[in-house]
Nucleic acid binder design. Sequence first.
DNA 1: CCGGATCCAGCGGGATACTG
DNA 2: CAGTATCCCGCTGGATCCGG
Lengths: 126, 126
Amino acid sequence: MWGTDLDVPTIPREQCPVSDFFIRMGDKWSLLTLALLRERSYRFNELNRAVDGISQRVLTLTLRGLERDGFITRTVHPTVPPSVEYALTELGLDFMDQVNTLAMWALGRHADLTAARTRYDHPGRP
Amino acid sequence: MWGTDLDVPTIPREQCPVSDFFIRMGDKWSLLTLALLRERSYRFNELNRAVDGISQRVLTLTLRGLERDGFITRTVHPTVPPSVEYALTELGLDFMDQVNTLAMWALGRHADLTAARTRYDHPGRP
DNA sequence: CCGGATCCAGCGGGATACTG
DNA sequence: CAGTATCCCGCTGGATCCGG
């Protein structure tokens, strides 16, 4: 990454064309939110309840970021009281497919990681 | 994710079998370090110079984490002065293959993201 | 109902100095 | 050379109150 394929990092990270996606991968709330929106569209407070443990402020920030990067759309319905609907875009869906592929791989490799971790934490042991 | 496939998050994140890998994906220094180690093994100060901008402390922490999770090996050569060699494991290599696959996809989608971002930052514009 | 504004605590991470 | 130890600061994220 950082260039085309296996390039050594030469570009500042902000200019790296793929880092935006990697940052999303590592972001806890983004993935949780997108996972929900993959099934159906949600309203704000719906998400606030469904995404367990998230604060109102952080949910707002997360949604803004996702909208800005084109992962989701934000539709305001001019009703009283107001209703805002969040939905996945095609890019967001494509992204989640990547996440899923990765998750499948990670699931198969999970045992190796925990084994290594146990070995590291308890040196000299069966 | 969070379960098998598209499950809604029910498990605490610490117990999610795949989150460890996703966190790595999002970690700046881990990816940079692993990218270097993919080509060849490195010594500590070599990495400290090659991974531009990283501090000694954070490099140490990063390497410890990667070693603990079985991505890299740490070999101490009992010479004077001491020499420590870091190298990629099979798991680490496999992981980097995933990273690469993802990077290829991200490269193709980069234009969509920046386009969305421009649209968001400059509303009402060609 | 959907947020924006504010205040505050925790900690990740940088800089520096010191050892085996 | 390869770290560990210490200090310190900025930013993230939680809680709360307020407004459209």
